[in-house]
Simulated assay, not measured.
Amino acid sequence: MTIKRPRTIQIFLPTGDPSGIRIAEQTTSIIRLIEVPRSEMADFVKMPESKQVGLYFLVSGDNKDELYIGQSGEVGSRLMQHYKDPKKEWEHALVLVSLTNNLTQTHVLYLESLSIEKAKDCQRYDLSNDNSGQKPHTPIPLKADCDEMHSIGSLLLATLGYPIFEPLTESSPSKAEQVFICNRAGLKARAIYTNEGMVVLKGSSAPMLTKRKTEQRFFDKRDALLAKGIISSDGERFEFERDYLFQTPSGASMFLLLATSNGWQDWKTEQGVTLHEFQERTIDSVITQEA
């Protein structure tokens, strides 16, 4: 998890196209992250960074939620192998290199293993790696450097829209997060509203069928999460096997109800305060304190 404090991040567009290659750096760090759309691979291999030792992430899926993590002594050549392999489905590569070109094979082997471990812990992406990487013997000073690189890399990834190593909810005991419940139509669901959307918590459950008027798209979404193992079913109910992020409160409640819903009204605190009312009170409280 990236420590939250003020940072300055620079994003450079070498072609001027915001949907093309993007290069992100923290102004006080030597770590550089390059986002390469698959269609721009020819341009990337011309860049000097493609000849460097590097760590890379391949992202695919309709929701950009499928991930492969790898490393190479010459990252451009390795990505070209992935590019030419018709069985490898990916749309974006994210390449982590050093501005001073001082990464070694030991650095990236350690970073690969650490990244796979952290990505599994966060459970945001479906990881396609068959193993956990090769964790080499790493001297304490080198390990400290790698941990710092991973922290900066995590920040840069999240800045570009890939929060691979960011927990869905706050894990700090000093910051208690408000839990909202939805118990309509046999639901037993708990969730937390974050700046990314609504996180439905592990253990939340709902009936597999509904008597309400519904659409096929709700069943399609449910079946997709069943296939991925994010939810499980006993035939009558389905249950979340891990925390899962929905982009909106309504998206979360509609998924559970298998029908249309206004999540701002259907998610409530245990005291019956709707999410809309809770947010309104929070804003009013801040305005009052500042007055």
Results as ranks from 00 to 15, higher is better:
1 M>A: 04
2 T>N: 08
3 I>F: 00
4 K>C: 06
4 K>F: 07
7 R>H: 02
9 I>L: 04
16 G>E: 01
18 P>E: 00
19 S>D: 03
20 G>C: 13
21 I>A: 01
22 R>H: 03
24 A>F: 08
25 E>S: 14
27 T>K: 13
29 S>F: 08
30 I>W: 09
30 I>P: 05
31 I>A: 05
33 L>E: 00
35 E>A: 12
36 V>Q: 02
37 P>E: 00
40 E>S: 14
40 E>D: 15
43 D>G: 14
44 F>P: 01
44 F>A: 03
47 M>T: 10
48 P>I: 07
52 Q>A: 10
53 V>M: 08
54 G>S: 09
60 S>R: 09
63 N>D: 13
65 D>E: 06
68 Y>R: 03
68 Y>V: 08
69 I>H: 09
72 S>H: 13
73 G>M: 12
74 E>S: 15
78 R>N: 07
78 R>W: 08
80 M>S: 14
81 Q>Y: 08
82 H>G: 05
83 Y>A: 06
85 D>M: 11
86 P>M: 03
87 K>W: 10
89 E>I: 11
91 E>C: 04
93 A>G: 00
94 L>W: 00
96 L>P: 02
102 N>S: 13
104 T>Q: 06
109 L>N: 15
110 Y>P: 02
111 L>Q: 04
112 E>D: 00
116 I>M: 01
116 I>T: 00
117 E>Q: 13
118 K>D: 02
121 D>V: 15
123 Q>Y: 04
125 Y>H: 06
125 Y>R: 07
127 L>H: 01
128 S>H: 12
133 G>D: 06
135 K>Q: 14
135 K>A: 10
138 T>D: 01
141 P>Y: 04
146 C>M: 11
148 E>Q: 15
154 S>F: 12
154 S>E: 04
155 L>K: 02
159 T>F: 10
163 P>T: 07
165 F>L: 12
166 E>Y: 13
168 L>P: 08
171 S>N: 11
173 P>I: 07
177 E>G: 06
181 I>L: 14
193 Y>E: 05
196 E>A: 13
197 G>K: 06
197 G>D: 01
198 M>K: 01
203 G>Q: 02
205 S>N: 11
209 L>T: 14
209 L>S: 09
209 L>F: 10
212 R>E: 01
213 K>V: 14
213 K>M: 07
219 F>S: 12
221 K>S: 14
221 K>W: 05
222 R>V: 13
223 D>S: 12
224 A>H: 15
226 L>M: 11
226 L>K: 09
227 A>F: 07
229 G>W: 08
231 I>N: 01
232 S>A: 13
235 G>S: 03
237 R>D: 06
239 E>V: 15
239 E>L: 12
240 F>L: 04
240 F>T: 03
241 E>R: 08
242 R>P: 03
242 R>S: 06
245 L>G: 03
246 F>G: 00
246 F>C: 05
248 T>S: 15
248 T>K: 09
250 S>H: 10
250 S>F: 13
251 G>A: 12
254 M>R: 08
258 L>S: 14
258 L>K: 13
262 N>G: 05
263 G>R: 05
266 D>S: 14
275 L>W: 10
277 E>D: 15
278 F>S: 14
286 V>A: 13
286 V>T: 07
288 T>I: 13
